[in-house]
């Protein structure tokens, strides 16, 4: 299968200093996953699960502490910034907070023109023309009205469109969308998702879609990976994950969706407590203090990622047959 982005056994440590004391936080712990050409891979997890870090590693905005990162067949783990710059055209990030994504003192037009001048050495006029076209393409019409505005003069939905226009202006092939709609109102959210899906089809892009909203993923993703405290807990085709979740944590995520969880008719799983501190994760299975199915083994031994059938894996002792 043709793979666009691949992480192999990736670990990412961050060091923080609190009052001079060093503390290590493992934000990503031995995660492997691949985004195939043309697919939408949905990565779901709560805050502190490491999902945004994984997104940033896959386009080498972060360099992992351990493990390898591939773009296509190219190992980009150690690639220096000077070489990465050429790849940046092809890999783009759409961040969660659109207000942080565009320099507040720049106009929308300037923000769009800049990457064109850097990457393609276009003339100013050509770049301006392309920027106008990009604005129209994301539905900011008429573009002349938005070109000279600054970020704070746009609504959240409009600004997210502008941010998408900028991410798309270099015609990338691989997009990491990090909660692109979680700050938006429900009535606006779908139109932004549709825009992303339309652009993906038009430019034949592959997408790593990061969110805490498993209901949304069930509608758009081809495959889903479920993260918990820096580890991949379950992975498989969307249909199977949603209709037949295996991991107790995935079941709990689906049980928690208001109103809609009843539609699925699944067994309900409730978890105690909260996700906890990534710098000091529980021993054994990381979910065990919260899991209603926890056995003695779960408290001491970390379960392996078990392949249950084709393309379907789960990190849980319940599915282990020795």
């Amino acid at each position: 299968m043709d793979v666009v982005s691949k992480l192999v056994d990736v670990t990412m440590d961050f060091e923080t200093r609190i009052f001079g004391r060093k503390r290590r936080v493992r934000a990503v712990d031995r995660v492997s996953l691949e985004v195939r050409r043309g697919e939408i891979y949905g990565l779901v997890g709560e805050s502190g699960s490491g999902k945004s870090t994984i997104g940033r590693i896959s386009i080498r905005l972060y360099k992992p502490t351990k493990g390898r990162v591939f773009y296509g067949k190219l190992d980009i783990t150690e690639l220096p910034e000077s070489k990465l710059r050429y790849l940046r055209r092809e890999m783009q990030l759409i961040p969660q907070d659109p207000y942080g994504a565009i320099n507040p003192i720049q106009t929308i037009g300037e923000a769009l023109v800049e990457p064109l001048l850097i990457h393609y050495k276009l003339s100013k006029d050509e770049a301006v023309e392309q920027a106008h076209r990009a604005l129209e393409e994301v539905g900011l019409h008429p573009s002349t009205e938005f070109f000279t505005r600054r970020p704070r003069e746009l609504s959240g939905g409009q600004l997210q469109r502008a941010v998408i226009a900028r991410a798309m202006i270099l015609k990338p092939k691989y997009i990491v969308a990090d909660e692109p709609t979680s700050n938006l109102d429900a009535s606006i959210r779908t139109s932004i998702i549709k825009l992303l899906l339309d652009l993906r089809e038009k430019y034949e892009q592959s997408l790593l879609f990061i969110t805490h909203d498993i209901a949304l993923l069930s509608l758009i993703a081809n495959r889903i990976g479920v993260l918990y405290l820096a580890q991949l807990f379950e992975e498989g085709p969307t249909e199977k994950i949603v209709k037949n979740p295996l991991h107790p944590y995935t079941k709990a995520l689906l049980s928690a969706i208001p109103l809609l969880s009843d539609e699925l008719g699944l067994e309900k799983v409730y978890l105690k407590g909260e996700i906890g501190d990534p710098s000091n994760p529980p021993r054994g299975c990381r979910l065990h203090p919260r899991c209603p199915y926890a056995m003695d083994k779960c408290k001491t031994e970390e379960p392996p990622l078990i392949m249950v059938n084709e393309g379907r894996s789960v990190k849980c002792w319940l599915y282990y047959n020795s």
């Binding site: 939905g157 429900a186 779908t190 069930s218 509608l219 809609l260």
Partner: peptide, 18 residues
């Protein structure tokens, strides 16, 4: 605009802005 998890159809969106 609520995602209906079983249908795999994208929810509707409302045109325009508040």
């Amino acid at each position: 605009a609520l995602p209906r998890i079983t249908t795999r159809i994208l929810p509707k969106s409302l045109p325009g802005y508040p």
